[in-house]
Amino acid sequence: MNTTPNIHTMIVAAGRGSRFGAVIAKQYTKINEQTLLQHSVTRLASSGYINHCYLVIAADDEVASTLTFALPIDYVIGGAERWQSVRAGVSAILESGANKSDLILIHDAARPAVPTEDIDSVITAAMSEPYGAILAAPVADTLKLSAALPKQHFDDSSEFSDSDNDYIKTTVNRQHMWQAQTPQVFRIGELSRLLDYINEHQLHITDEASAFEYLDLPIRLVSGSRQNIKLTFPDDAIVLAAIMTAQA
């Protein structure tokens, strides 16, 4: 195994962020006078391992090319789904001459507060793994599994519709439960192979580590900071602004 691989870096910024509910794509939301995408690139640039970044953007994106970034940038056009965007970026990096044993670091544009030490830690961990490593945080909150309450629990005058019937079914044991974060770092040849597998079998994945899970391939968990939150809902912007101000 190549224990001193080259590090290739990619930020996925082709999504629309529908849950965020804004008119603009959420990666262009501004916090402290810069977009999330600019902040995320700057944070990656703080790592001594990273000196270049691929940005995977939507075909109709007219914003990214107007921004200035803390790293040299190459642009790649993404797909309709996240995994398709990642696959496009992986293909571009391999076509540029990357070795299949090199590492690819994939980060979300909407995580602009990842600490430098966490970036370095997940890269270092991935260097000694055959497949890769991801940042994640152990689940601290009590988890509840929900289910719709059977209709016999309501009388005919109940004001609740079927869509409102979401009630606690049970408490989920949070031992061994982790919240996945990014960056996620993988051997680029292995990731490419697994994304081809996902495409061929029309499988659904929510992050790149999920592709490895389908074939029961081990991906190491690296404990990351709880400062590394993702902008998903409008209220998250307030929290992120406070975190990034404190980090400055």
Rank of each mutant, 00 (worst) to 15 (best):
T35N: 00
I24H: 10
A137G: 05
I73V: 10
G17S: 06
A22Y: 12
F233V: 14
V239L: 15
A58H: 15
P150M: 00
D155V: 03
T29S: 03
I219D: 10
A242E: 14
A246F: 10
Y28H: 12
H153P: 00
T4S: 15
Y75H: 04
A58I: 01
N173L: 10
T206V: 11
L67M: 09
T245H: 15
T182Y: 05
F233E: 15
H107Q: 13
L240S: 07
T116F: 00
Q227N: 15
P218E: 03
D120S: 02
Q227D: 15
P138V: 02
A92N: 01
L195E: 04
I119F: 00
W178M: 11
S101K: 08
A147T: 15
I119L: 02
A133V: 06
S161G: 14
R226Y: 12
G15I: 07
H52S: 06
P112V: 09
F233N: 13
Q247P: 03
I73Q: 01
I31H: 05
I119Y: 01
L135C: 10
G17V: 13
F186I: 07
D236G: 12
T124F: 12
D120W: 05
L215F: 11
T68K: 07
R43P: 00
D236L: 09
A98S: 08
A88M: 11
Y54S: 03
S223C: 14
G15M: 02
H52F: 12
N173K: 13
V56D: 02
N51R: 08
L103G: 02
Q202R: 14
A88G: 05
Y49V: 01
Q152L: 09
S40P: 00
D61Y: 04
L135Q: 05
A248M: 11
I24K: 11
Q202W: 02
I198V: 15
R220F: 09
Y197T: 08
I238D: 15
D236K: 11
P130A: 14
T142P: 03
W178V: 13
T66K: 13
A59K: 13
E208V: 10
T66H: 07
G78W: 05
R82Y: 14
D102Q: 03
A80G: 09
G189L: 08
L55C: 06
H201A: 13
L67A: 02
H153I: 05
I11V: 14
T4G: 08
V63M: 07
I188T: 10
I93W: 00
D162N: 12
D164M: 11
V23S: 13
T171G: 00
A248F: 10
S128P: 02
